[in-house]
Amino acid sequence: KVGSMVDCKNKISEHREELSSTLCVVMKKQTEHLNAINQLSAAIKCRPSDIGLAGIKDMQAITYQYCTLRHVAPNRVLNASNQLRRNNMDIKVVRGVDWVLNRGELEGNRFEILVQDLHQLELRDKQMKESEPNLSIEIRRRPCHKSFLEECVSRVQRGGFVNFYGEQRVGNAGDSADIGVRSFDIGRAMLQKKWTEAVNLIMIGRSLTGKGGEFVEGPERRLVRSTWKESGGDPIKALKVFPRDANSMPRERAVLQGLKRYKDPLAALQCLQFSVRTFW
């Protein structure tokens, strides 16, 4: 009997080693990707690098995605659920697994999209005056009937659609003096190993004004960026004026804290998760 109990314990131990990760489903709402990782890390009390996610979900949506938690027992996940609910997040345990999710390991996304105020557009050639013989296009709006909408959906099912990258991925078109820093500007500096330039571009951010002259960012964020610029890139002075909200400007905060601690731009950039750095 003693031998059987020892064998049983050994098998349980081996099974625990095999199932070294916990597979979960994470729900988030109005939460930026890096903030979500930080909140998971704090609630579950694990390292951000132990959280495996296959991709980045949109902030302006209610999203669900699988994640793996390396060397995290299911009971720790259950204990963290209440804390996450207070921050527009939740997590549910699926099962133990012997693998971890890495960036790009996904089969695709499924969306439920609510579209409102639909109209059918009717295009007609409009004859100009005799002095202007060229034709122009007249656009008229008509009520959108169910049959027309079903035909549009069927056309997408048959032929697919172009998957556009939004401005949040590549930045606005135009001169950099007008629109500010674009994502690929930061990525290019990293590939060229210009670490100081990459940090500076992250802190400069987008243009202060949009196309209509309105501010793109709020006053608290603008204060951080202007302080960074006016102080000649002093991380201590910039951190002092950071917004009180811990979820605000998470990338900039992590880089500045790394720069303050290590005094090295490369080490500061390495304070960001690998998946975050590759996003640029």
Rank of each mutant, 00 (worst) to 15 (best):
S4Y: 10
N247K: 14
A43S: 15
R158D: 10
G174S: 04
S136K: 11
K211F: 07
I202P: 08
E150C: 13
T31L: 13
D58C: 05
E132V: 06
E214H: 11
V224F: 08
F148T: 10
R95N: 12
I179V: 15
A177V: 07
K28N: 02
G205H: 03
F279T: 09
Q60I: 12
R261M: 06
K9T: 05
V100H: 14
L208R: 07
D58V: 05
E122K: 14
V77R: 09
G205Y: 02
R169Q: 05
S226R: 14
K193H: 12
Q257F: 04
E14Q: 14
E197Y: 00
L78A: 10
C67Y: 01
I44D: 00
D125Y: 06
I139A: 11
Q157P: 00
M203L: 15
L223F: 03
M190E: 00
D178H: 11
P48F: 01
R182N: 02
E105C: 03
I44A: 01
I44K: 06
L239E: 00
N200H: 12
F215I: 00
S147Y: 01
S154K: 09
Y64T: 09
I37Y: 03
L69K: 01
D7L: 15
I186T: 01
K193I: 08
I137H: 02
Q65R: 01
V77K: 07
K129C: 04
V153P: 04
G233A: 04
Q39S: 11
Q60T: 11
A173T: 11
K129Y: 04
L269I: 12
A189N: 05
R169K: 10
E14V: 13
V153F: 06
V97Q: 07
K129F: 05
Y262W: 15
L239G: 05
L118F: 05
L84E: 04
W228A: 10
I51P: 05
P219F: 12
I113Y: 08
D90L: 08
F242P: 03
Q270P: 01
G218V: 08
E130Q: 11
H33Q: 13
Q273D: 09
I37H: 00
D178E: 14
I91R: 04
R182V: 07
L149M: 15
E230M: 08
V2P: 02
L40N: 06
P48L: 03
R221D: 03
L69C: 02
V2Q: 11
S147M: 02
I202E: 07
T196E: 12
L259I: 08
G205D: 02
M89T: 09
D98P: 06
N10H: 07
V199D: 02
V153G: 00
I179F: 13
R70F: 12
D185W: 06
C24G: 06
N109F: 03
N109P: 03
I37T: 13
M27N: 12
W195E: 04
R110Q: 10
A54N: 04
V153K: 09
A173Q: 07
D7R: 15
I44E: 00
R141T: 08
E105V: 03
R261I: 09
Q65P: 09
F274K: 13
H145D: 14
